[in-house]
């Protein structure tokens, strides 16, 4: 029996449609799940607390400021970085002053009049997103910077984690 040789070769083409469909679905999925607000959080080991309330989305107008404090005493706020852990008290004081300046500037950029209560206090809450091992005095200095008479941010939030031993975690 003679073998049949196919001589008439056609261009083999891959059907790209299902792949493009899947790719678009992936793009849509990532677009919907991405949470750019999480970019504000610096990776730290948060303290644990059972009494923390669930962290939900907030009103855009009074969107909080997030101040990150790492275990080594570095403060990250927006694109700024300040070192509170210097050996020199003068440098530590400069860092606190610089944080105050940054808070004042960012607050005024967001609309000074709109974000103030009648008594001048800011409506903007500050979340202190601090490592559990950061020195407590650094947290207090951040609080003092927020409460400065030019800034008047009194609403605070401490970022905490749900203890892993709790039911449901």
């Amino acid at each position: 029996m003679a073998a049949k040789v196919i001589t008439d070769t056609e261009d083999a083409k891959m059907n790209m449609t299902p792949m493009i469909d899947m790719t678009f679905l992936l793009v849509v999925f990532f677009m919907l799940t991405i949470d750019l607000s999480q970019k504000e959080f610096f990776p730290v080991d948060l303290p644990f607390a059972t009494t923390g309330v669930e962290d939900k989305e907030e009103d855009d107008e009074v969107r909080r400021f997030v101040i990150n404090l790492t275990g080594d005493g570095t403060v990250h706020f927006k694109s700024y970085e300040f070192n509170l852990a210097s050996e020199d008290p003068g440098e530590q004081d400069d860092a606190i002053q610089a944080l105050q300046d940054a808070l004042r500037q960012v607050h005024s950029e967001r609309g000074e009049i709109l974000l103030r209560e009648k008594d001048g206090a800011s409506k903007v809450p500050v979340m202190i997103h601090a490592d559990w091992g950061a020195k407590w005095k650094y947290v207090q200095w951040i609080m003092q910077a927020c409460a400065h008479p030019d800034i008047k941010i009194y609403k605070l939030q401490f970022a905490v984690k749900k203890p892993p031993t709790e039911k449901g975690s």
Partner: peptide, 11 residues
Amino acid sequence: IDRRIESMMPK
């Protein structure tokens, strides 16, 4: 983050 403790500094 899943939780936070809310606080208010005294004026």
